[in-house]
Design a protein around this nucleic acid. Structure first.
Length: 577
RNA sequence: GCUCACGUAGCUCAGCGGAUAGAGCACUUGCCUCCGGAGCAAGGGGUCGCAGGUUCAAGUCCUGCCGUGAGCGCCA
């Protein structure tokens, strides 16, 4: 039976040429946004400067009666035009994709130096679900940027400086360093912080000591700095445990805490003064960026130096901008920070631009994300005590995954199960966070997060594991099938091949505006296309060797794209689960 | 009060100016002598918050309103 798509293609080619007034190839590359199923007349209409609908109708009229073909395809209407043209390229495209180590993803034409500011937990404070979002989204963006060839500088702007450290250090002294180190080391950061806070609020003697200690810290007192380093070291080693548990890229090399910028704060003030931006207001030194007003409709300042002479986080953020531009060489700065910080970051950008610190083309992007909500749809706040400890959450995810695996695959040895459970459990949590648009609020829901159905990481991982299983069963090395010639007779084979070729576009779309969920959506579509293919097109028992080889090629390429795509999200792809 | 974000099926969400608005969950019905059923195939379920505007074309862009949430001078 003749391929209906090729039949339509051959019938429409002269019609297109007639309408275009000469040879015309209106094919849109399948990786384009307007993919194979969009309106094929659109590019031609744009080229001709005419109305798409009119052009489509003209093409159809020139093609004559197509009812016989339409009856034999699942598509109808003017939009199908492009589908048939794109199909000519599918086999060739799949062949080149299969032998390409980068799976068709083109390097960025304009490699930049990008700083990514993310995670940013506070020393001596527990990491909670809010840090999960920043850490996971930032990690995915870092991996995608690096994959397409940008120079990426990870910056973990930990809260390791400022007034709370007076009370934290005094509490450390009270406890004794050993005991304090133990508490922090085992991750009882909340207990430590809360106790320090309680004493600060209730004990005037302690509060006085704490305030004195802040002064000593800022003056660089040796003993105070030593105690401070103890706090920081114990906390960061705990953060590192969580990062390893989460399987993110952050290491001590990426630490760029607030303390790092301490010596740059005074120069920030001087440079702003030199630029004529600094104004005295209510005893503080401030800058008034244009267009910001407060609740009384008066100009809203960015406070650079407080009335008591101290600096605050705006000053630190400005010092960061200078450091990133002048020392790191950033041409793009990303801030993976919650949406409530939007106005603050806008003001920081505005002041930085006014001061001339940002070159014309330098990107300053707030990669904002919504709040984590409880089941009551109210914000989950750490202060209220109802927040979930991140490390406990991750442990539970892995436990749940382990019991699911034990149930579904009892033959798997316990040690391997533990390893796979990490990939599945952590992957489920990360994917749940990454798979919806980051700007929206996020309802924290154990059941949905860990139910391994629908658009979840385990579904994608399962598709990958099934492919690995086929190769195990056949006793075939994956690399050996990549030279096969694709034959795409079944619509499910064609759909899968088209989907594979869109990987490049999916990565680009995810990076355009920094939306990891677009990659998730693509991977879900790909896995769906695969399982549909898998259920309907026998691979090892294909009707002949040519089809079998082609289907093995499809399987291998699918597995590679899934593993690579999940990898860009920071999620593992086990071979069995 | 001002500013920002969000509002799409019972629930959770895609849809970045282009076909008759799509998925998952839940619900209904088929499919395990068959490469892994964590699956597949099919069905019911919609005033895209409301009203204007721009456009050949609006869930998508603009304006106003309604609802929800957040932010708004010395915390970070």
């Amino acid at each position: 039976m003749a391929d209906p798509f090729l039949t339509v293609a051959s019938r429409l080619a002269p019609a297109y040429s007639a309408v275009a007034g000469g040879p015309s190839d209106p094919v849109v590359r399948p990786s384009d946004r307007a993919d194979a199923q969009s309106n094929g007349a659109l590019p031609l209409a744009k080229a001709l400067g005419r109305q798409p609908r009119e052009v489509a109708e003209q093409v159809l009229a020139a093609a004559g009666d197509l009812s016989d073909i339409l009856a034999s395809t699942e598509v109808a209407g003017p939009g199908f035009i492009n589908l048939v043209f794109a199909d000519r390229f599918v086999a060739a495209g799949l062949s080149s994709l299969a032998t390409d180590a980068r799976l068709g993803v083109a390097p960025a034409p304009d490699p930049r130096t990008v700083t990514v500011d993310y995670s940013a937990p506070n020393v001596a404070k527990e990491m909670h679900v809010g840090h999960l979002r920043s850490t996971v989204i930032g990690d995915a963006i870092v991996r995608m940027l690096a994959f397409v060839g940008h120079r990426v500088v990870r910056e973990n702007h930990v809260g390791d400086w400022g007034t709370p450290f007076g009370m934290l250090i005094e509490h450390l002294v009270d406890l004794g360093e050993k005991e304090a180190a133990h508490e922090l080391g085992v991750g009882d950061l909340d207990g430590f912080y809360k106790e320090a806070r309680r004493k600060f609020d209730s004990d005037e003697t302690f509060a006085t000591r704490a305030r004195n200690r802040v002064v000593m810290l800022q003056q660089g007192d040796t003993e105070t700095l030593r105690l401070w380093r103890t706090l920081v070291a114990e906390s960061t080693s705990y953060f590192n445990k969580v990062y390893r548990q989460l399987d993110v890229l952050l290491t001590d090399e990426d630490l760029a805490g607030e303390s790092k910028y301490n010596d740059l704060l005074a120069p920030v003030v001087e440079r702003l003064r030199g630029a004529g931006l600094l104004v005295e207001s209510d005893g503080a030194e401030v800058v008034f960026p244009a267009g910001f007003t407060n609740r009384d409709n008066e100009p809203l300042p960015l406070i650079i130096r407080k009335g008591d002479g101290g600096y605050n986080y705006a000053t630190t953020d400005l010092a960061c901008v200078i450091d990133r531009v002048e020392n790191v060489g950033a041409t793009s700065m990303l801030y993976v920070v919650g949406a409530p910080q939007a106005q603050h970051l806008e003001m920081v950008e505005s002041v930085s631009r006014s001061a001339g610190w940002l070159a014309e083309g330098t990107e300053f992007v707030h990669v904002a994300f919504g709040s984590v909500l409880g089941s009551d749809r109210k914000m989950l706040k750490s202060r209220s005590g109802e927040s979930v400890k991140l490390s406990a959450l991750l442990d539970e995810a892995v436990e749940r995954a382990a019991s699911a695996i034990a149930e579904k695959n009892p033959a798997m040895p316990a040690d391997e199960r533990a390893q796979v459970a990490r990939m599945v459990g952590i992957g489920a949590v990360k994917y749940a966070d990454l798979s919806s648009d980051r700007i929206k609020d996020y309802v924290f829901d154990w059941d949905r997060m860990l139910s391994f159905e629908g658009n979840t990481a385990p579904y994608l991982q399962y598709a990958h594991a099934r492919i690995c299983s086929i190769f195990r069963r056949a006793g075939l090395e994956r690399e050996t099938v990549r030279a096969a010639r694709p034959v795409l007779g079944d619509p499910r084979e064609r759909a899968l091949a088209l989907m594979l070729m869109r990987f490049d576009g999916a990565v680009r779309e995810a990076l355009d505006g920094y939306h990891p969920h677009r990659l998730c959506t693509y991977l879900w579509d790909l896995a769906s296309a695969f399982t549909s293919f898998y259920e309907n097109c026998p691979v090892l028992r294909a009707e002949d060797d040519v089809v079998r080889a082609s289907r093995l090629l499809l399987c291998d390429t699918t597995a590679r794209v899934l593993a690579q795509g999940l990898g860009l999200l920071g999620i593992g792809a086990p071979e069995q689960m």
